[in-house]
Structure formats: C-alpha cells, structure tokens
Design a protein around this nucleic acid. Structure first.
Lengths: 293, 293
DNA sequence: CATATTCATAAAGGAATTTTATTACTGAAA
DNA sequence: TTTCAGTAATAAAATTCCTTTATGAATATG
C-alpha cells in the first residue's frame, strides 16, 4: 500500500468522482483509476462501486475512510512538524555552559536568537567543565561551552574566544589606579579565588605553580558575585575572567590587567564528534561562532 | 513521503546498518541509501548521522522513530483487517428476511455458514416486506429476502424458490386424511390466517378475491406458532407456507396441499442494484442462491 | 600499514506510473 | 426510442522513478 493511493482514495471518496478528484490531485483520470484499482487489490476488497454515472463507497470503503483519513492526517502532522523544525519554527536547543559564560556572554546572544526565532525553546544548563563534556557525550545537550577540554575522540572542539583574567581591586586600594599588575605581585595580597574545581581556579593555580608559588587564598567562593561582594567590602583582590567583569560590574570596581604571564582561558565550543545538530541548535551555534564579542 | 521510505527508516534504525537493513528488505544497499536520503529531504531534517563505520539516529530521528513506527503499525493493521475481511476471517453479514423465512429456511443455512466461517458475525433481522426493501435501499442490510417485490430501479431481485401454501388441519378433522383440497372448499371452514399486511395473508386474500370470495377469518394471528397452536386445539384450519410447516411441525399435524389454484409465493433475494457486497455477505448470498431446499 | 567493511555516488537498466487516445457504458434530453 | 453528454475503463506509448551494478572514499582492525 502506498500513501499516494490512500490520498487518492480519500479525495475520490470526497468528490464521488474520479475525474474531479484527478483534477484536484493534478493527475489524469486513468492514472487515478489505476491507483484505486491497485489499492483495492492490495487490500483485497472493493472500495467503490462505480459505473460511468456514479461513484459510491462500498460498505467496507465507508468503514475504512475515516480510519485512513485520520492516519493520513497524522502522517502529515509528522511531516509538518519536521519541516517546522527545519525552518526553525519549532524545536529546542539544549546547551551546557560554564557558569561564567552562561551568566555573561550567553544571555544577550540567546536574547538575539529568541528575537529571530521566537518559537524555539532554549534550555541552558550551567555546569563545571567535566559535566559539560559528559552532557555532550551522552547527547543530553546539543553542544557545550567549556574551557580547557582535553582531547577526546568523542568530542570535537571549536575555539570561540579567549577569556583574559583580570584583578578586581577595592576602590580604595592603593593599586586602584594602576593599569596592569604582574602576577607575582598579587601573591602578596589577600586573594579571593573561585573554588577549586572551577576552570578559572585551575588556570590561576597552574600559573602560580609555574612561577614557583603556592596560592593560599584568603577566601574561596563558589559564585563570582560573592567574590565581587568581598572585593567591594575591601577584603581582598579577586581574579576573575574579563568577560564577567565587563558585563557585570561596569565601572563599579576598578580592575587591572594581569601581566607576565597573561592568564588566558580559551573558551571552546564542545560538540559530539561526527554528529549533526538539529536545525535550531545549528542556528544558535552559528550565531555563537560568528559572534563578535 | 512514501510508506516504503518510512519502513526503511525503521529497519535501518533497528539495525544501525544500511547493509543489513537492505538485506532484510530485499534491496541493495545503494537503493536504501537513496530511500533514506529522499525521506530526509522530504522531511527537511537529517535522520541518521552516518559514516562508513557507524549509523546512528540523530536527536530528531530518535524522536520520530516511535511515532512513525506506531503509524506504520496502524496502517498495517488496517491492511490486515481488510485482508481478513477478504478472506472471510472477519466481518459481518446483515440480512433482513421475512419472518417465515427467517424462522425456517435461514437458520440451518446460517448454521452451515457459521460452521465454515466461524469468525463472521451474522445479523438477521425479521421484517415485513416493505421494511425489507427499505433496509436494502439504505444499505442498513447487505441483502434482503422477501416476496412479491414490485419492480424498483434501486433494487435487484433474484428468485430463490417458491413457497407453496398448505392447509394445516387438526388431527381429528374429517379432512385429516385427505391429500389435497380445493381452495374454495376451505371457505366453508373456520380459517386461521396471518395478520393483514403479511405477505402470506395478501397472497391468500388475493386468491380468494380472484375466486369471487371474501375471506372472514375466524382467527387472525401475528405468529405462525400461534396459528399452529390454534389448529392443534381444533379451532380451525390454518393456511401456512410449506417451508414453515415442513420445518416446524414435522408429522405432528396433518397438512394438505391446496389445489385449484395452487397458492405460490415467490421468495426472492433483494439486493441494492449495482452495489457490490462485502466478501462475507457475498459468500452467504452464494450459499443461499446455490441452496437446494 | 594493509585489509576488510561500510556508506556514498554515478551510470545503466528496469519497473512502475502517467499520459494520450480511445472505448464502453449510463442517464437525461430530444 | 434515440441521441447526446458525461464518465470510468482500457491499451499502448512515453515518461518518470527506482533499483542494480560498479566503483570510490572513509575508517576501524589486525
């Protein structure tokens, strides 16, 4: 049985006429006659009683019509649904991102995306690096945004931008007017750092270790806003990603570039290798990769 | 979208392999590749991520698989259902018949039919002549069995057999040993006749009228069994169709042929003109027309 | 590094479907 | 009753579509 035949059956039944049905279907009448005959043969039952003057459903045809019509409608709905996904008029994008990115870079991007594609749902999950990779691996998310991804055959990474660390100092601090500070100079100050396990912290620990230092932070916090609060209270200097600083504090607190070495954190897109994305996710990814910060 | 493509989709998904799926579908692998590509194009979305080493559903493919599988199953169920009807393994036959026929000739016939086709349901409705025709006309029944059908463009009739009227007399009646009786001789007896409106009664009234007589029955009954009861009580002579007498009373009561004129009632099959019958109804009709009483 | 396996592609062949042209039938009108 | 108009069925030709054959490209395995 072919769907085309079923479609023809429904139209012939509706019009009680092969000629008019053929018109609507953009077919010639003999083609339609053949289609109905084939459908009847594949079902083994007559669907229409027809002569040159009238076409009428048989009892069995009458019984089958609503059933087949419903099934046809469901098929069409599936197709329509798929096409809406293809046209970005329906769908969901699932992302896992580092909290710093999820809180700063992504919101305006997602806002622009929603503006363009209001019917697409975006699910954003903030997680630490390792969980991002895991989520991408089991396809719990369409893609992830992380940092410092170790090479993994299952994962494919695309560099997005580099996040440079800056030192955030209290307004009253003697360094407040400086432009840049060397990393080893910071060791003398009470430091406010992110928890161990965060990608920002690993980067800082590694940099200090490379310089022969061991950091003992004055405060360890989970959220960047806490770090900012501690700085504002004059309790120490925080080392935070520049994206977060630019977006969240504006001119409120002074921040200094860190030199020698510059602390860079590459922010990368994480994709499951060899897997295509749903159209909506692809569109968002494209906006992300072509994005000028 | 074609059902064939959907079928292929399901099989490829099940096997995660074009080659093995093609095997199962009795196709070559390139043909299958083309089918899946076409399906993807008609839907506008990728269903599989594939390389030469692995075939895996995309997220959208994974979402669509159960839906399409269900729809495919429903289609197959419709086809299977139709084929079972064609093979007389499922279906219903609806008949409207005169009460005398419904009570006597049909039961053994239906019994034989059910023996041969146990899964077919037979719905038998007993009605008077006019209602039989109406039921056939609006296709409330597949066919009818009546008598004395006036020509009607919408109806087609097939003679089945002739029902001959006989006089049923009480065992103690002086005529009990006779073989035949003339119709005009019956007028002298107390007669037990069916209600006006029944086809048996019309036949009798007409016959008497032709002979210049007006019948005034001693009893008018609705059911033949009532008539038989009255005869058994010695209250009169009943004029009943021979089929009914043979089948229901056996040797219990004597009955006489009626001569000059013989009262015949043609029993005919009534069909809606130009309409085909469902397979089950056709089978029962065939048994009926080829039946030796 | 070679090999075997697997999916993709292109061209040729074959199958199925559609169109064109015609016939046969039916109901309505002359 | 006959004719006419309209309709579905049929047959053959043309076309479209699909499948196969042959081959290529990619990748994991030994």
């Amino acid at each position: 049985m072919h769907l085309r035949q079923v479609r023809s059956f429904v139209v012939v039944a509706r019009f009680s006429s092969f000629t008019r049905a053929a018109d609507l279907l953009n077919l010639t009448q003999p083609a339609l006659t053949v289609q109905i005959r084939q459908l009847e043969q594949s079902l083994g039952v007559k669907l229409f009683d027809r002569n040159t003057r009238a076409v009428e459903l048989t009892r069995i045809g009458r019984e089958m019509l609503p059933v087949l019509e419903r099934l046809l409608g469901e098929f069409d709905a599936v197709v329509a649904n798929a096409r809406e996904m293809a046209n970005l008029r329906y769908g969901t994008v699932r992302i896992a991102a580092l909290p710093s990115v999820a809180a700063t870079v992504l919101p305006p991007l997602i806002a622009r995306f929603k503006e363009r594609h209001p019917q697409i749902r975006v699910v954003l999950r903030d997680s630490v690096g390792e969980r991002i990779n895991a989520a991408v691996r089991d396809e719990a998310v369409d893609f992830g945004i992380g940092s410092d991804i170790e090479p993994d055959a299952e994962l494919e990474t695309v560099p997005l931008f580099e996040d440079v660390m800056r030192a955030v100092v209290p307004a009253a601090h003697p360094l407040a007017d400086a432009v840049e500070i060397r990393l080893d100079r910071l060791i003398e100050e009470p430091l406010i750092l992110m928890d161990k396990g965060s990608s920002v912290r690993s980067l800082i620990d590694r940099a200090f270790a490379d310089g022969g230092h061991l950091v003992v932070p004055a405060y360890e916090v989970t959220y960047m806003s806490t770090a900012v609060g501690l700085v504002r209270a004059g309790l120490g200097i925080a080392i935070l990603p520049s994206t977060a600083i630019e977006l969240r504090m504006e001119a409120e607190l002074p921040s200094l570039a860190i030199g020698n070495p510059v602390l860079r954190r590459p922010i990368t897109l994480v994709l499951k290798a060899g897997r295509s994305l749903p159209p909506a996710a692809e569109a968002l990814r494209d906006m992300l990769t072509s994005w000028e910060a």
